[in-house]
Design a protein around this nucleic acid. Sequence first.
RNA 1: GGCCCCUUCGUCUAGUUGGUUAAGGACGUUGCCCUCUCAAGGCAGAAACACGGGUUCAAAUCCCGUAGGGGCUACCA
Length: 454
Amino acid sequence: MSVVTRFAPSPTGSLHLGAVRTAIFNFLYARQNSGKIILRIEDTDQERSTSDSLNEIISSLEWLGINWDEGPYLQSERLDIYREHAEILVDKDLAYKCFMTTEEINQLKERALRENKIYKYPGTWRNRSDHPKNAEFVIRFKTPKSKQIKFVDSLRGQINIDSSNIEDFIVLKSNGFPTYNFASVVDDAEMNVTNIIRGEDHLSNTPKQILIFEAINKKIPIFTHVSMMLGKDKTKLSKRHGAESINNFKKSGYLSISMINYLARLGWSHGNQEIFSLKEMISLFSLSNLSKSPAIFDTEKLSWVNTSHIKISDNNYLKKLLELKFYEEIDVNLAIQCAKEKSKDLNLLKESLKFCENEYADINDKLKSEIYKDNGIDLVKKFSRELKSLEKFTKESIKNLFDNFLEKNNIKLKNIASPLRIILTGSKVSPGIYEVIQILGKNLTLKRIKYFLS
RNA sequence: GGCCCCUUCGUCUAGUUGGUUAAGGACGUUGCCCUCUCAAGGCAGAAACACGGGUUCAAAUCCCGUAGGGGCUACCA
């Protein structure tokens, strides 16, 4: 049977890094096995679900390039399906209607608290048939007493839990919406999901879900519970570190492949390899190489991964992402080639290419004054005369030009490079001065010098 | 509290059936080199098997216990 995975976020906020990571694992596994991945939106909490959140989930996945094969299915549009399954369970005496009100339950909880006991739904309506008319009810699962529930997690092995630890949990809320555990199982069954790859926080939910799978008589998929992702202080991800939306990382200049690479590598490994292309990840990914222990999100390493990917990215691809206008005489390819070698993110890359936008560089007064230091201006004048008479304009000839110029004037490279850099780029930071001249071309270089001197 | 999961450098990890591993790589960090700026790069260094018992000729690797961390225990997902 071919592989079917799913990514099932709830639209109750922005898509955070932890969720993205499980999406990546599901995506990689599906692609590797030529299977499919389903996008399912678990919006059974009417209060908290928002369409903004849904839109953000979709746009984030699109940006990352995690494309899904089916969906998005919205659980809120599949209510009939859950209701039908719930009714069948009631008919088969595997579930029952519970008419206990919220107030009554709260009373029980308070009493348990007072008596220092743990509240657990007592099964009041488990075997009653004296149902009141026109009263609100929920449907609860009739959890078997004292049954050994067994399942295998592909990472953690055999797991056994006694059903006595599980109360008669709600399957269908009084508003007709299913609860998470129920909707999730019904959908996984209906959608023929073969592999459930999700966060470890769902490990404890799995026994309940096994019970439901058995009750609705469906095949139990293979479970893989991936370790949690934690923040820098070893606590759950918070806004401080990582729970912020993936969109923020896009804004901060991260490449989507960097996010995928870093997040995938956090908890998964392939020997000592750190940098992967998407193709490599798809072919090398393996559920058995996932780590069982939680991983801490580290911005520093993410940043390094991003730098590494920028360095190996195609220049044209970067050009498209930058949305930068280049002045016509600029050697765009060389400019990007030089700049990407030392840019940590797209924003900085863009920043370092600003001198390529217009005909002339924008030089502020403070920098202007620096040019006049140490005879800088005279050297630049001399240099421009030499450059003008340069016939062959190549990397080598530019270097030779400088070498001769330094010797003739008995100066060090920085004496001419510093003022020249400011005049040509409007900045004290730029690619190497030889490269800058090459990027601008002979004509534009001379034009910028002349313009400044005038 | 109950139940479940986890535990190798500060961080991500290699270690796949116990045996040249004086535990390897990467990020970060320290020092040096390169250098026209900022970086990048190169070289070198510091840095870990949570603890305690077993099993075994041999344990980071298997077993038990302790401690620590995390999760679930909702008409949240």
